[in-house]
Computed example of a mutant assay.
Amino acid sequence: MADANSRSITTNQTGLHEKLDEIVLKHLNAEFKKPIAEHTLQAFNEVNEKVLAFSGPIILDSCCGVGESTANLAQRHPEALVIGIDKSSHRLDKHDVEYKQGEHGQYILVQADLNDFWRLACEADWQPSHHYLLYPNPWPKAKHIQRRWHGAAVFPFIVKLGGILEVRSNWSTYVEEFARALHLAGVDAVCETYESEQAVTPFERKYWASGQSSTRLVVSLSRS
């Protein structure tokens, strides 16, 4: 079965990246001045209208891919408005065909660049109750450390957004690095092996079917 043939992470990196602390501290102490892309600003403004009109909790499902996780999270949190964000219209376009859940829950899918969307959400003073980062692209080559979210210039805004942050990956080093980055930002998080009877995302289902394990961290981020 194809689902059971998901390849394991291959990396030329041993342990945490040797420059992780240096990179994270640089981003924590610098201002991220990259201009906001117009298409993401427009997408954010449309979603923000719905957020302002909604009286319940807001939940973010970042890097939501085809949005199966977004629909599942909306079922799990029926009192909340779940916002799934992904940069790929190709992935999001698959949602209604294969992954839409009809019953319970409220959710929106939006195509946007998270480097901009998270900053706009902070600027608009969104206060999500939960923020999920489920199986983001791990960029396992050592030279791509700054493409991982904890090594990216936008990382401080993940911390500023607050809420209960949950990160999952099939590459334990990714989660361990994320925990280290949070520690440098003044937040201590514990990594743990994660198992469940029900997979929430297509990637999670593939990884488990091929015998891979998941590592996660769950941490409550206070608003700074």
Results as ranks from 00 to 15, higher is better:
A74E: 14
N137H: 09
D113M: 03
P136R: 10
C122G: 03
Q75M: 15
A121C: 08
L81K: 00
H130A: 01
V110N: 10
L92R: 02
P78R: 08
H90I: 06
Y99T: 04
H77K: 07
N137M: 08
V97H: 14
E79G: 01
I83L: 13
I85F: 00
A80W: 03
W126V: 01
F117Y: 14
N137V: 13
R119V: 06
K100P: 06
A80Q: 03
V82L: 04
Q106T: 12
A80H: 04
L109S: 11
K87A: 08
L109R: 11
E103M: 10
P136E: 09
K94Q: 14
P78L: 03
W139P: 07
R119G: 03
K141T: 15
E79Q: 07
L134G: 02
S129L: 05
G84V: 01
E79P: 01
L73V: 12
P138V: 06
D125I: 05
C122R: 10
F117C: 03
E98Y: 12
I85W: 00
N72D: 13
N137Q: 12
S88K: 05
C122D: 05
L120G: 01
L114S: 00
Q127G: 07
Q127V: 13
L73G: 09
W126C: 00
P140V: 02
I108Y: 09
E123V: 01
D125N: 15
D116Q: 05
F117G: 02
L109K: 12
N72P: 09
A112Q: 08
L134N: 06
